[in-house]
Write a protein that binds this DNA or RNA. Structure first.
Length: 234
DNA sequence: AGCCAGGACTGAG
DNA sequence: CTCAGTCATGGC
């Protein structure tokens, strides 16, 4: 597909989603550190469960969630608190790695950590154990407020169905580049775009094909209608 | 009763 | 490099 056409379709997709759902108000958190904790806890996990874990941490900290709380909590105790998010031992270690890095290099100050450009900060985040590309971009976009597009399984699924990519197994960096090279580098735009994709896929497409009722149907040439099989509308 | 969530790491081939 | 196995809980 021609490069300029991709940009047009990405914009059109964004408009359709925005028109259908409106602003999503992401990320659902009070502070940038809470965004980071949530980003780690929601890895391969339903947000509902990750949220419970975040709430547990907040109340354990007497109401607010600060890096120092994670730093001083015993790892076993930490795992116990975040159990609802799944993989408690794994995620406890990942939370520890992040805050240990934060204190070692920035005396626990996120503001200092974030006071650098996107690319070096992204490389730094990727170097922390337990932070892969999606989590790094989530932190960059929703906590550091830098224009880094977040790609997830929903993004792959949706773009595949829209015919914008051939294969869902496309490399993470390639798909991220597809958005960033065809859209203006704008924090508010990336923020809403990713949130809208998640909203849409959670609501109507999941693993099913898109159907004529879906708000973005006009863009979907591969629209088969298994979606409403239960309604007898197929 | 399975199947799957807003992934990342590891080790094998 | 590609890819299965691993990590674990809660909702539908």
């Amino acid at each position: 597909m021609a490069a300029e056409a991709v940009g047009d379709r990405l914009i059109e997709l964004y408009r359709s989603l925005y028109e259908a759902y409106g602003p999503q108000g992401w990320w659902p958190a009070e502070t940038s550190f809470e965004v980071i904790v949530g980003a780690i806890l929601t890895q391969a996990t339903a947000w509902r469960n990750a949220k419970r874990a975040v709430e547990n941490l907040k109340s354990a900290g007497g109401g607010d969630l600060i890096p120092h709380l994670i730093l001083r909590l015993d790892e076993k105790k930490l795992a116990e608190l975040i159990r609802p998010s799944g993989y408690p031992n794994l995620k406890a270690r990942r939370l520890k790695s992040f805050v240990e890095h934060l204190f070692k290099k920035y005396s626990g100050s996120l503001e200092r950590m974030f006071s650098q450009d996107l690319d070096p900060l992204r490389d730094e985040l990727l170097g922390i154990h337990g932070i892969g590309p999606e989590t790094a971009d989530t932190i960059l976009l929703y906590a550091a407020e830098k224009p880094s597009f977040v790609v997830d399984a929903y993004t792959r699924r949706l773009l595949r169905r829209l015919g914008l990519i051939e294969d869902e197994r496309i490399e993470y960096e390639k798909l991220r580049a597809l958005f960033m090279e065809n859209l203006p580098r704008d924090v508010a735009l990336y923020n809403e775009y990713h949130a809208l994709i998640v909203r849409h896929c959670k609501e109507v497409c999941r693993k099913r094909p898109l159907c004529y009722r879906c708000p973005i149907n006009a863009l979907d040439n591969v629209c088969i209608t298994l979606h409403h099989k239960d309604d007898g509308i197929t």
